[in-house]
Design a protein around this nucleic acid. Structure first.
Lengths: 160, 160
DNA sequence: CTATGTGCAAACCGTTTGCACACAT
DNA sequence: ATGTGTGCAAACGGTTTGCACATAG
């Protein structure tokens, strides 16, 4: 069993040929974009724009640029946006895994520790999380999003 | 099977003796607080502060007051805060159900339709939601929150 | 050289707070 | 009469946008 100490965040190899991806899909391969991707790889866990900017290093990157690049990377599938419901945007580098490997996280409400959960069961999850990671008072937040029948229909005949 | 048209939100009877509750737990029974609770009962579904203020009626209630009262009601267990991850706070009246009846929602990404889900399975949930409610492209958002071992320990010996 | 990307500063938007007046007890 | 609650306006914090300069191609 893996300790929670490692933050549950595996090492991820850089997405292959992202330079080529950017060049083809999104424009120019910039020093800033390289630095941002490297920062994300170093951070490994879902991180706020502020954390990402600081991780870039000395001549730290502007927040506006972080947001613009994260939006870009997200559209390219290089990065996933994660929502912990605290009003802060977070981004994490996507796994090489083609489909983006959907996963969840276990957070400590007190410190900022994050455990990445690789499988998505849920029935027995909460109690087993407690025994596996030693967390207590576990809660979860869950919502479903989809397209309802009316909107499916509205899509077919675009305007009223 | 119930159509999604009813928004999946059941009629809820007003929490019994909430005036008494307020008086005992939280202070004064105000006209504004009565109007806010009535608005929440009328709305039935998770609603934003702005929606709630408008639902109060003519001499609409100040947003600051909505926030202050929602916080109060939440602490009293009269109201639940719901997070759909769109950066807006939402509040719904709590069921009479003593423990607050934990539940989830199914939202349409296109319109604002909300279906309340009474049971929390999840394994087969997404596909069965599709067939039950006619929604498509269903996704869900899920995070776990708890207290990690270190913080449990830090709690026991308060200051370093 | 030209068009895209970045930094800076201002705008935005939801939420919170300070303060004087209103009102429940 | 007293102290809590409310409206108003300003403050706040994260995110977005406009614009002039920097830079990749």
């Amino acid at each position: 069993m893996k300790s929670y100490r490692d933050h549950g965040c595996h090492h991820r190899s850089p997405p292959s040929q992202w330079q080529e991806l950017i060049r083809r899909q999104a424009g120019r391969v910039t020093r800033t974009r390289q630095l941002l991707l490297e920062a994300l790889l170093r951070l490994r866990c879902p991180s706020t724009p502020k954390q990402i900017a600081e991780a870039v290093g000395r001549r730290t990157c502007d927040l506006a640029t972080v947001y613009r690049c994260m939006t870009l990377f997200e559209q390219m599938g290089l990065v996933h946006r994660v929502d912990f419901g605290d009003g802060l945007a977070r981004f994490e580098i996507a796994d090489d895994d083609p489909s983006g490997h959907h996963h969840h996280h276990l957070l400590c409400r007190q410190c900022d520790r994050i455990v990445k959960l690789d499988d998505c069961i849920l029935g027995e999850v909460e109690s087993s999380l407690a025994s596996h990671y030693g967390f207590v008072e576990i809660q979860h937040r869950l919502e479903f999003f989809g397209i309802c029948p009316d909107c499916q229909q509205a899509r077919r005949r675009p305007s009223p």
